[in-house]
Amino acid sequence: MKWRTLIATGLVAAFSAGAGTAEEMFETFDTNPSKRWAYFADTVMGGVSTGNATFERDASDSYVRLSGEVSTDNNGGFIQVRRTLTDRLADTTKGVRLKVRGNGGTYYIHLRTKGTRLPWQYYQAQFTTSPDWTDVQLPFSAFKPSGSFLKKTQRADTVTSVAIVAFGRDHTALIEVSEVAWF
Rank of each mutant, 00 (worst) to 15 (best):
G104N: 11
T129K: 08
S67G: 04
A22Y: 06
R155S: 14
F143K: 06
F183I: 11
M25P: 07
G76D: 08
S60H: 13
S148D: 13
P145C: 06
R155A: 14
T21F: 07
T172L: 10
D170M: 06
R97C: 02
G18I: 12
A156Q: 09
I164P: 01
A53L: 05
R83Q: 13
V162W: 00
S141A: 14
G147F: 00
M45A: 12
G147Q: 05
W3P: 03
V96W: 00
T92E: 10
T160V: 14
E27N: 03
L6W: 10
Y122P: 03
A53W: 03
A90V: 00
S71L: 10
F15Y: 07
L66C: 03
Q124R: 15
L89R: 09
T84F: 04
S161E: 10
A181I: 08
E24M: 11
D170Y: 01
F78K: 09
A22E: 12
A142I: 00
L150A: 07
G76C: 09
F167V: 01
M25I: 15
F149P: 01
F15A: 11
G68S: 08
K144R: 15
Y63W: 02
V177T: 05
M25N: 09
V64A: 01
D157N: 15
V48F: 01
R65E: 11
F127G: 09
I7K: 06
F55R: 12
T43K: 14
P131R: 10
P33R: 01
W133L: 08
L6Q: 06
V12D: 01
G46A: 05
A173D: 00
W133Q: 03
G105L: 09
I175V: 15
E176C: 05
A90Y: 02
N103Y: 09
K99F: 00
F127N: 08
F149C: 03
R4N: 11
L85F: 09
T72K: 06
T92G: 07
G147P: 05
I164R: 02
S161T: 12
G102R: 07
R101H: 02
R155H: 08
L118W: 08
K144F: 03
L66P: 00
V177F: 02
A13S: 11
K152N: 13
G10K: 03
A19S: 14
M1I: 10
Q121M: 14
K114T: 15
F15V: 14
W182M: 14
T116S: 13
V12F: 04
V177A: 03
D135T: 13
F149H: 07
F149L: 15
D42H: 13
N75G: 06
D132C: 00
H110M: 11
D135L: 08
W182L: 14
M1C: 07
M1D: 11
W120H: 12
Q80W: 00
L174A: 10
K35C: 04
Q154L: 15
T113F: 03
V136P: 05
R88H: 06
V70P: 05
E179K: 13
D170T: 11
V64Q: 03
G168L: 05
